[in-house]
Design a protein around this nucleic acid. Sequence first.
DNA 1: TCTTAGCACTCAACATGCCCAAGTGCTAAC
DNA 2: GTTAGCACTTGGGCATGTTGAGTGCTAAGA
Lengths: 337, 337
Amino acid sequence: MSEPRKLEVLRAIVEDYVHSREPVGSKALVERHHLGVSSATIRNDMALLEEEGLIAAPHTSAGRIPTDKGYRLFVDRISAMKPLSAAERRAIHSLLEGADDVDDILERTVRLLSQLTNQVAVVQYPHSTRAKLRHIEFVLLAPRQVLVVLIADSGKVEQRVVDAGVDVSDEDLTLLRARFLSGISGAPLAHLPQLLAPVVALCPPALQAPAAVLARGLDKLAESSRDERMMMAGTANLARSNVDFPLSIGPVLEALEEQVVMLRLLSEMAEDPRGVTVSIGRENPYDGLSEASVVATGYGPGASAKIGIIGPTRMDYPSSMAAVRAVARYLSRILGS
Amino acid sequence: MSEPRKLEVLRAIVEDYVHSREPVGSKALVERHHLGVSSATIRNDMALLEEEGLIAAPHTSAGRIPTDKGYRLFVDRISAMKPLSAAERRAIHSLLEGADDVDDILERTVRLLSQLTNQVAVVQYPHSTRAKLRHIEFVLLAPRQVLVVLIADSGKVEQRVVDAGVDVSDEDLTLLRARFLSGISGAPLAHLPQLLAPVVALCPPALQAPAAVLARGLDKLAESSRDERMMMAGTANLARSNVDFPLSIGPVLEALEEQVVMLRLLSEMAEDPRGVTVSIGRENPYDGLSEASVVATGYGPGASAKIGIIGPTRMDYPSSMAAVRAVARYLSRILGS
DNA sequence: TCTTAGCACTCAACATGCCCAAGTGCTAAC
DNA sequence: GTTAGCACTTGGGCATGTTGAGTGCTAAGA
């Protein structure tokens, strides 16, 4: 059996199955693709492919369907990304119109991506680990309640209300703000914990207590600014591909709701040289996604944040990969401005 | 036919059907409930109920299932809220532990509510229409880029980056901030649009352009602080009650993703004297939810913001209503502190 | 007037048997 | 290495029969 033809057969099987959702047999294969050989030969090839675990038969007298491993080989060695249509390109470009703040851009982006691929789209907020502190603000809301605001040079603003424990005045706060600012202005958020202690120590004895509280508040803010968020769209697409999830889409929905899970999943996806990473079925570290595939890539500075889609293993990988890559590039461009 | 017994029969049908998901017939009914009459009598009553459109038969020789109208009557006149179990009460109370900022509280709340009811839970962010402006901040990020921060006395902080159009200095910004503050500090956010114009007019001629940009930025912030957001949890529960949605859960997921739709839906639900409002099946203004029911109530000051659950019309209304009410009350208490 | 027993009727769900088409593996010839 | 041919497997479609839960109606009883 010739190696190239074997791959060609696998490709044909994957494409037909993705298209028809039905196990594909040797005869149908030679009819739909001009492979230049007879069905008997294809049968032999298929037996080989099955031995290697690339395809499987649901029951004795049915055609074959690709396994996770088969999809993997298809993605890695056989398929080429399918260029987007003109209409799709236009849709991506028109995304720019009325682009507003980051939230708005990301929301439009996931919606677009989910429509382009007919899958669930997810996007991780841009990283800000290296963000530096630009500004802080203490605002007295009530005699003991202080609103602490932290502004990073990435433009991100975090706020939280803390209870000072004792009554403080506006003047106290102004003083404290100045002290804090001189101590930590411009520092990377990651260094905040170490920098705050000495600042508190230098404050006037009378203000030690509230200073400590405020420091803890800032610390928490820096922390929550480091922690990550995501956004998604197109969950209704899961209902359409209901049949593709043998059990139910329940576990997938659960996974999507657990942002922690999704974020870890996205960030664990190693960067592929081709620019788009694919994780297929059981390759996924999370059990609930064992029937699903993830197509993702990085975007933004250093491609550090991730964007991608999630769908059944039986998906159109070439198109999905192309769409994810195109959208990610465009997103990088918009945010880079 | 006695009126009370007719209601009793409807109650029995609803309860059995909700429990078993199967059309319930006259014989099964007299067996499971001690109604003191024979199945023939029940048959007559059922014929009456069907005439009134309260129940329907999927096909000739099957039992009956409640219609939307039947559920409505059940909810309005028959059922009493089922008191929560001790374990459930405990779960709600333990919600308080580690309560953090508003986001955190709301997130815990929806998760809890979705677990209690096995449905999708949604909560609208507390209103802040009457919020007043407490503070504004202009921060120079780059020669022309200014971060505009708006802080309301409700503790809400909104921010956005605007392009000043021309280079501005830190001093310019300090000056502008002072001008703006004196003009609008303490004003209700709703009045901002009218108040901003005169403030801009009073600025030095050289700073007119950036002042106008900043004013527009503040205006937008006030607007987006007025506009509403929501949070949800438990979408995976929809997959479980898949069978209950004749077509598919797709339309429901779509509705849930359209926050605008959901927010309008929630706010349009008239307040019921009993404290919890129910909207059943086709009563819902949104087509995608014609197979779903919404159980919601207000919480917080003036019960202005809404919290509720969404599930199939075939749901356990008494339990759902009790859970929603209990959680809403508790949420009000936490936020009121 | 309401209730009930009895009865004829309906119909989805299930079972059974049958056949067919698609598909497979294997063998022998090219 | 390829192919034609063939025996074999098996799920799906179809026609047919059976069952049981359920109904509506009627006529008799309280």
